[in-house]
């Protein structure tokens, strides 16, 4: 029963965040200032998520195997490599570095 209660609460609050965020989109776009900002929310937050996924572990900012994997992926992106190559390189380099350290 406790399990179901947790599922219900987390479902409702996650949907609420999605709903409030999505609703803010419409009224932000109504003002000229909001409209200029809103088109750059995606790259800003996604840049933040990249930092989170690459450089954090537990409660600390870290540089570990992922950093090299993602750096190699970035070089592949600059060289216009296809997406499977980019992601494949990130995974392989990260796994190899973990295997040898």
């Amino acid at each position: 029963m406790r399990g179901w209660t947790l599922v219900a609460i987390v479902a409702v609050q996650t949907f609420a965040m999605r709903w409030i965020g999505s609703s803010s989109s419409g009224w932000l776009a109504k003002s000229p200032t909001g409209l200029r900002v809103i088109g750059y929310v995606a790259p800003a937050v996604l840049g933040g998520l990249v930092a989170l996924a690459t450089f954090t572990s537990g409660d600390a900012v870290v540089v570990d195997a992922r950093a090299l994997g993602v750096a190699v992926a970035a070089v592949a992106i600059a060289a216009r490599a296809p997406i499977l190559v980019v992601v494949g390189l990130a995974v392989t380099v990260t796994a190899l570095l973990r295997a040898v350290t």
Binding site: L6, M17, V45
Partner: peptide
Amino acid sequence: LLTASMAGLALSLRYLPLGAAAGRS
């Protein structure tokens, strides 16, 4: 239950800006 759901809510806050980016579309 309160602590566990608040831990989840903290991580759901990212849907506020993500929703702001996508909602109008």
